[in-house]
């Protein structure tokens, strides 16, 4: 029972981190139709910039400045890269962002090298907030939860309660009409791209000290972010949140409990084959939940695509 509570908190942290990445991506995708493969690379840049800034000015300045730099870079990429490629259609855009992802990874290795960076949790947050049956919850995790929730509320407020948000939402569905009403739609696109990458940057800044700051960090998170926005429904902030939390909890619980496939199969009425090592189904019978934890989101995505192709909260067909 105690462990369940601990896992709920852990899954929440993982899910909210994922949300910060997918929120930006889902907005960018629904607005411009661009699958930004370089999104996770901006996450990595956030971590590296924050590390570099934290050496000189401390962690908090890093948290403040690094996402700004990443956001400005993102806006620059949209203004001077994507916008030019846009006229040639979606495939060149895809290839452009894919190339950008590779470029950023090489650049990071070139500047900071291939080693792990000693990017540490700040001293003020480096203590145990509380413990549940010997499982301590670090204060930094609580801090991560607060930051992500604050960002979610802020985003929700801007998108639904302000004039800027209204224009963005209108531009999502009817860009031509919004443009003919006198709004500068390319500027909105640039702004959304910048804010989206800045969010990825924030995620990088706060994830860097706990998940490690190394050149492969974009790669390990890259694909799962796309899964999140497909499950949640493209363009939906709520969808991104629900899908992120779902993935966070599913993978955390699957890893924490050694549920064996043989138990499940026995439970639903199949009996274990007698000579298991020769059986055709050996691999299926010997699978345990931690082994398949990381592919569960992908299975979920396939199921969603079959039964509800526009995602949990999607409003239109993908």
């Amino acid at each position: 029972m105690d462990l369940i509570l601990v896992n709920i908190i852990d899954g929440l942290v993982t899910g909210l981190l994922l949300f910060m990445l997918s929120a930006g991506l889902t907005l960018i995708f629904s607005m411009m139709g661009v699958l930004n493969f370089a999104h996770a690379s901006f996450y990595m840049l956030g971590a590296y910039f924050a590390y570099q800034i934290s050496l000189a000015l401390g962690f908090w300045m890093g948290l403040l400045i690094a996402p700004l730099i990443v956001g400005v870079m993102g806006a620059g990429v949209e203004r001077y890269g994507l916008r030019r490629v846009h006229q040639y259609g979606h495939v060149p855009e895809l290839i452009f962002t894919f190339g950008l992802a590779l470029l950023i990874e090489e650049l990071v290795q070139f500047i900071w090298g291939k080693n792990q960076m000693p990017y540490q949790v700040p001293d003020v947050l480096n203590f145990t907030a509380f413990a549940i049956a010997g499982n301590s919850i670090p204060a930094y995790k609580i801090f991560m939860i607060f930051i992500s929730v604050a960002i979610f509320i802020g985003l929700l407020y801007v998108l639904t309660r302000t004039r800027v948000g209204m224009i963005i939402q209108a531009a999502l569905s009817y860009p031509r009409t919004v443009e003919s009403l006198g709004h500068n739609v390319p500027l909105i696109f640039m702004g959304v791209f910048g804010v989206g990458t800045a969010l990825a940057g924030v995620a990088g800044v706060i994830a860097g000290p706990v998940l490690g700051t190394f050149p492969g960090m974009a790669f390990v998170l890259g694909s799962i972010v796309f899964v999140t926005i497909v499950i949640g429904g493209l363009g939906s902030l709520w969808g991104a949140l629900v899908a992120s939390l779902l993935i966070g909890w599913v993978t955390t619980f699957a890893k924490s409990y050694n549920i064996a496939m043989s138990d499940i199969l026995n439970g639903i009425g199949f009996s274990t084959p007698e000579n298991l090592s020769d059986s055709l189904w050996r691999d299926l019978w010997t699978v345990t939940s931690p082994q398949i934890a990381d592919i569960l989101p992908y299975i979920l995505m396939v199921l969603i695509l079959i039964f509800r192709p526009y995602g949990l909260f999607g409003k239109r067909d993908a």
């Binding site: 601990v6 390990v220 931690p290 934890a293």
Partner: peptide
């Protein structure tokens, strides 16, 4: 491939 080792740590 493991993003977060927290569940293993628990």
């Amino acid at each position: 491939k493991v993003k977060d080792f927290t569940p293993y740590a628990r």
